[in-house]
């Protein structure tokens, strides 16, 4: 089972309050932190199970982060990328999360 998780196409991100988000590995690995967590050679629990538990990020922020991952994947190698909508009340928390996730 472990071996199937390491090369699975999808990974699961879990927020501090228990929300789970399943998204393509390539999209999630935009984040340096998640990429290092999931690095198969690291033998981290996250790498073996394909689940990253992000205790310090709330579900509402993680949802936006996942939206960014997909937005980033979608706009890869394109010019004139429109800005993503970020609700103002979320931007500080999202900024902290972005800093933590190294995105």
């Amino acid at each position: 089972m472990a071996s199937s998780a390491t090369d699975s196409e999808f990974v699961t991100l879990v927020s501090g309050d228990g929300f789970e988000f399943v998204l393509p590995r390539s999209a999630a690995c935009v984040s340096g932190t998640i990429r290092r967590m999931l690095e198969p050679s690291s033998k981290f629990a996250e790498a073996l199970t394909g689940r990253c538990i992000l205790e310090n990020i709330s579900g509402i922020v993680l949802e936006k982060v996942c939206e960014y991952f997909c937005y980033n994947e979608k706009n890869k190698n394109q010019s004139n990328v429109p800005d993503m909508e970020i609700p103002p009340e979320l931007c500080l928390e999202l900024l902290m999360a972005a800093d933590y996730l190294d995105t």
Binding site: V65, Y68, Y71, N72, N75, K76, N77, Q78, S79, V81, D83, M84, I86, P88, C91, L92, L94, L95, M96, A98, D99, L101, T103
Partner: peptide, 29 residues
């Protein structure tokens, strides 16, 4: 640069846009 801005950069810009509504930055690095 091709592709989207980094999330941190995008959020920083958004924070700057809304600077007048912000009371404190908390423990922003």
């Amino acid at each position: 640069q091709q592709g989207a801005l980094s999330l941190a950069e995008m959020c920083t810009k958004k924070v700057a846009d809304n600077i007048n509504d912000i009371e404190e930055f908390g423990d922003l690095p």
